[in-house]
């Protein structure tokens, strides 16, 4: 068993890119919540228990438009349906991790997922705690960032226009890293071109689920050639 300190030292540096993104984006969320009149309590509550970056922004827009909790619930299922893919991808990695498993599942955000599936613990480092630390750190950044935003928002006025681009930048960088990690670019192309196609056909509000269906269909049709060629 290695010490928590050794695991910490292995996990912490890997979370730095998300640190920047989540402190800034969390702050943007806190500032937005504050501008709508929400107290620090609700900022903390949502970042702790909803803990889904883009959905929290959507939630602010929804509650500002009127009180419709059932509508908001179904909206959440639609917006977050992409999480189903993360769960499927993590079935193996989360197997046998014991009592941390519920938290690992709860905290499976876009960023946590993309980090967990792209990093491996260094030799001799306990994989369970390594993954757990990554997930806890990332939520810590998000909660800290959003509280910071709530406090700052009540003190100063900011021009935060365009700040949400941090997330786009993060995913573009992950996309490049992933692209360079493999010779087979067909899965990446299916994802990006399928999503663009569905965005054009179905519009910005309703394209996620069609994109997921498209991706599933394509990778199913191409199962044999993909397995033969290898894609990892």
């Amino acid at each position: 068993m290695n010490s928590n300190k050794a695991v910490l030292r292995a996990a912490l540096p890997l979370t730095i890119p998300v640190f920047t993104g989540f402190i800034v984006l969390g702050a943007a969320y806190g500032i937005l919540m504050d501008s709508k009149g929400f107290s620090l309590f609700w900022i903390l509550f949502t970042s702790l228990f909803i803990y889904a970056g883009s959905m929290q922004f959507v939630a602010v827009a929804l509650i500002s438009a009127g009180f419709d909790p059932i509508g908001a619930f179904f909206m959440t299922l639609m917006v977050n349906a992409r999480h189903l893919f993360y769960g499927i991808s993590m079935l193996g990695k989360f197997k046998g991790i014991g009592r941390i498993k519920p938290y690992m599942i709860f905290s499976l955000t876009d960023e946590t997922f993309s980090l967990l599936c792209s990093v491996e613990p260094p030799e001799g480092i306990d994989r369970k705690r390594f993954m757990f630390f990554i997930s806890v750190f990332i939520q810590g950044y998000w909660v800290t960032g959003s509280l910071l935003g709530g406090v700052l928002g009540s003190m100063f006025k900011f021009n935060t226009k365009g700040i949400d681009f941090v997330l786009t930048a993060l995913f573009v960088v992950i996309f490049i890293n992933q692209w360079q990690s493999t010779k087979n670019h067909i899965p990446a192309l299916i994802g990006i071109l399928g999503a663009i196609l569905c965005r054009i056909i179905f519009g910005p509000a309703d394209f996620i689920i069609p994109s997921m269906i498209f991706i599933l269909l394509m990778v199913t049709i191409l199962k044999r050639p993909m397995e033969r060629r290898g894609f990892k």
Binding site: R82, S89, V172, A188, G194, R199, M212, I215, M226
Partner: peptide
């Protein structure tokens, strides 16, 4: 089949996330 999906989906989903943003 689900194992196959588990392996290949991560390579497709990041592109979807970029478009989503």
């Amino acid at each position: 089949y689900i194992k196959y999906l588990a392996d290949i989906l991560p390579f497709t989903i990041i592109g979807l996330l970029v478009v989503y943003c």
